[in-house]
Amino acid sequence: MSDISLSPAAAAQSLVSVRNLSKLYGGEKRFLGGNAPILKAVNDVSFDIAPGETLGLVGESGSGKSTTGRILLQLEAPSGGDILFKGQNITGLSKSLLKPYRRDMQIIFQDPYASLNPRMTVGEFVAEPLDVHGLSGNRSERQDRVAGLFKKVSLDPSFMKRYPHEFSGGQRQRVNIARAIALDPAFIVADEPITALDVSIQAQIVNLFQDLRDELGLTYLFIAHDLSMIRYLCHRVAVMLRGRIVEIGPCEAIFANPQHPYTQALLSAIPVPDPDIERSRKPITFDVGTNLPSETAQLQPLGGGHFVLRS
Rank of each mutant, 00 (worst) to 15 (best):
L75F: 15
L75Q: 13
E76I: 07
E76Q: 14
E76N: 13
A77R: 13
A77S: 14
A77C: 01
P78I: 01
P78H: 02
P78Q: 06
P78D: 11
P78V: 03
P78S: 04
S79K: 02
S79V: 10
S79Q: 08
S79D: 10
S79G: 15
S79L: 09
G80L: 03
G80V: 03
G80F: 06
G80Y: 11
G81E: 12
G81F: 06
G81H: 11
G81M: 07
D82A: 14
D82W: 00
I83R: 01
I83H: 08
I83W: 04
I83P: 13
I83A: 04
L84H: 12
L84R: 09
F85Y: 14
F85S: 07
F85Q: 07
F85I: 04
F85R: 09
K86L: 03
K86Y: 00
K86D: 15
G87V: 12
G87W: 04
G87M: 08
Q88K: 08
Q88L: 11
Q88G: 02
Q88A: 15
Q88S: 14
N89T: 06
N89M: 08
T91V: 06
G92Y: 02
G92E: 08
G92A: 09
L93S: 08
L93Q: 08
L93M: 15
L93I: 08
L93A: 06
L93V: 07
L93N: 05
L93G: 07
S94D: 14
S94W: 11
S94R: 10
S94L: 11
S94M: 10
K95W: 02
K95I: 10
K95S: 14
S96R: 13
S96Q: 13
L97D: 15
L97T: 01
L97S: 13
L97C: 08
L98C: 01
L98S: 07
L98M: 15
L98K: 02
L98Q: 10
K99F: 02
K99M: 12
P100Q: 08
P100L: 10
Y101E: 02
Y101K: 06
Y101H: 15
R102G: 04
R102T: 05
R103Q: 15
R103C: 06
D104V: 00
D104K: 11
M105P: 03
M105C: 03
M105G: 05
Q106M: 04
Q106G: 12
Q106L: 12
I107R: 02
I107E: 05
I107V: 15
I107G: 05
I108C: 09
I108Q: 06
F109D: 06
F109I: 12
F109S: 11
F109N: 09
Q110S: 05
Q110G: 10
D111Y: 07
D111F: 08
D111Q: 03
D111L: 06
P112H: 00
Y113D: 07
Y113R: 04
Y113N: 07
Y113S: 03
A114R: 03
A114P: 00
A114K: 04
S115I: 01
L116A: 03
L116G: 01
L116F: 03
L116D: 02
P118T: 03
P118D: 03
P118L: 01
P118Q: 06
R119L: 01
M120I: 02
M120Q: 15
M120A: 13
M120W: 13
M120G: 02
M120K: 14
T121K: 11
T121E: 13
T121Q: 10
T121W: 10
